[in-house]
Design a protein around this nucleic acid. Structure first.
Lengths: 216, 216
DNA sequence: CGCTTCTTTGACCCTTATCAATGGCTGTGG
DNA sequence: CCACAGCCATTGATAAGGGTCAAAGAAGCG
């Protein structure tokens, strides 16, 4: 793999990694950090497509499609592993295992987007929030980023709102309700879920589903 | 490619191709026909993930992830090209070009899901409907399935409603408004868009974006 | 020709968006 | 060290978009 790796890149918090509309000669893998993908519509509204965590692939779209259809930004300082567009072809030619992993990642991501779609399309406000919190907590825990049940959640309420398709105000009020009922505590950039089970049930999530991801 | 192709499979209208929760030793490519992917939630509600058209890949998810997270059904008689799970590995080992196409397809699909997400999250009812109609018309036309501007749309209003996250009733009323204003005419299983430009503008779609797809 | 499935329409109301302010925290400069 | 600016969270009031319910047409089908 080292052969295809050009180098590492560290991006400071708040900076854009890839811009919607941009072409990119490179794509990345996240080594450390957290970020988000988002898309800006013509009407000025913003949709957060997904939250980006270590192990995620970023920018393959631009390499393959020619142009990014969404932006990716770092929410905290983030370190990326850089690969070259040209290397991608080498990869497919000489590293069937690795290219398979790549497709694997794509398929899992696609799968997750399908679930997100179902959430936006068919669940009400509290279910959406519960769903997002449980999934985030789950993924971050699986990455070993939990410290006594608390995982880092460096995003703003506005980001979550844009992710689940709710207004900031309503997101805030829904979060407040969850906090009061002792199910979820998101504060100071950290999240813990004392009522993980209840939240999962509320959102209609099957907890026994450990969606694994391969590393490149 | 023929080496990996096991055979062809024809499914009659209304039948399920792949069931949510099922494992599948095969995956498919659509040769002819139309269908839809949908996901059923615990609360009984249904989300249509996407509409399936010729050239689409179906069931790669089950091969890669182990289990389908959504169902796929044929809306009209549909012919599939069948590939074997084992063949997939051969493909990656010996056909870099083809495996690249596979990833390509995945990436494009992922991209499209992102746009769908933005639609459900950030657009109102008429924008969603307009978006869906324009996109469907666009893809079907690109596939050469248009006859004097009219493309086959064999789905029910309920399917469209479940795709864009609206109720059947509201979808119906929104469609009625579009019909009265002469922008779109969906009837008798066919769709024509006299007001394609206006609809695209209403939905905030960039029409100059011909999302191409490779064939396997 | 009766049955089922799908579309259409009207009435009512609930969830969520929007608007508008206030409060809290942090960093910066005087 | 305090005042001020900026960003984000919080809260209340009001309104609207879309959901739900219910029932009546249409249309395909055995």
């Amino acid at each position: 793999m080292e052969r295809f790796k050009i180098g590492e890149l560290t991006i400071e918090a708040g900076r854009t990694i890839l811009m919607q509309g941009a072409q990119s000669p490179q794509f990345y893998t996240v080594l450390r950090g957290q970020g988000l993908r988002h898309k800006t519509l013509e009407n000025g509204r913003r949709q957060v497509i997904s939250f980006v965590l270590p192990g995620d692939l970023v920018g393959l779209q631009a390499v393959v499609t020619g142009e990014m259809q969404h932006s990716v930004e770092a929410s905290v300082e983030t370190t990326l592993c850089v690969f070259d567009r040209a290397g991608l072809w080498d990869l497919f030619s000489n590293q069937p295992k690795r290219s398979y992993s790549l497709t694997w990642l794509s398929a899992v991501e696609e799968n997750f987007l399908g679930e997100t779609l179902a959430t936006l399309g068919q669940r009400d406000a509290s279910q959406r929030i519960a769903w997002a919190l449980v999934r985030l907590h789950e993924r971050l825990s699986a990455l070993g980023m939990a410290r006594s049940g608390r995982v880092p959640l460096p995003w703003r309420q506005q980001d979550l709102a844009d992710a689940v398709g709710l207004s900031l105000v309503h997101t805030n009020k829904t979060l407040a309700r969850l906090r009061e009922s002792g199910l979820a505590d998101w504060s100071g950039g950290g999240l813990s879920l004392p009522g993980r089970r209840e939240l999962a049930e509320m959102a209609g999530i099957d907890l026994e589903y450990p969606t694994q991801r391969p590393l490149l």
